[in-house]
Amino acid sequence: MSELFVPVLLTIITASTPLVFAAAGEVVVEKSGVLNLGVEGMMIVGAVIAFAVGVKTESAALAIISGAAGGMLTAFIFGFLTLRLLANQVATGLALTIFGLGLSALIGHGFVGKTFSGLPKIGVPFLEQIPVLGPLLFVHDILVYLSVIAVFLITYVFNKTRLGLIIRAVGENHHAAHSIGYSIVWVRMGCILFGGSMAGLGGAYLSLAYTPLWVEGMTAGRGWIALALVVFASWRAWRAFFGAYLFGGITIIQLHAQGFGVDIASQFLSMLPYLATIVVLVLISNNSSRMMLNAPADLGKSFHASD
């Protein structure tokens, strides 16, 4: 039985990891009161840069770092436009996606058809020997571990640290936070850059581990799914983590079910991950006051000290 389930579950982890990165990063961005719709653009720039560096240097570590840096640089453009020039966040985010898709196609032009050896799997000593659970939980590439650690860290920072409180204060009421002396622009810029590097890591995971190749538009809408997952998770990183695994899980299980010849329309099965997301969204948002409580009050609003 386990030789049947382990590959399925392993595929689910692969399918969910890019979403975990992008969604958890966006949770932090939105908690600080910024709505960055450019996740798809940051992801794909991260993907292409990670892949390009990976092919040129054959170094997985350099490739991962460059992917995160690529996402971060793209996010910096967004931060500069929305925080410094006070551009509309929704429009800038959309533009960032279009820009990222175009830029990545340009950068990736010379890398179409190249291949990368993929990320090495790292086994946790002793734990990897456990039957079934060992190969399932303790033999992965570095990015899978990193995605889990990141979710833990974000949850910890928001719940237990002063930094978390500051970010939340900035997102809830930027005037109040400003009046007690916090720099709204720098806090938000920090969050935007963090979100960008996380999206970049999600993209890097796609082009280095998931399908180690570069093709234009290879994110195929995962950035948008990550954005939906943030609302789904009511702005909590650990819920975004489970949302990503729910989405990835249903996607993969339906593919396997088809292979076994389960007699359900494949269109219906393809719809399932989205349907499940919508159902959960409806369930958690039917209590509108609780929903309002979770959403950062100043989400999407520009800040200027003179307002």
């Binding site: 595929t11 998931y210 290879m218 809408g221 996607t251 593919l255």
Partner: peptide
């Protein structure tokens, strides 16, 4: 065995179908 992915182009999903 046939697996339908309901898309012409999604490298990740195509790879998942191949893995399945």
């Amino acid at each position: 065995k046939v697996v339908w992915v309901s898309t012409w182009f999604d490298p990740g999903k195509e790879a998942d179908a191949a893995k399945a």
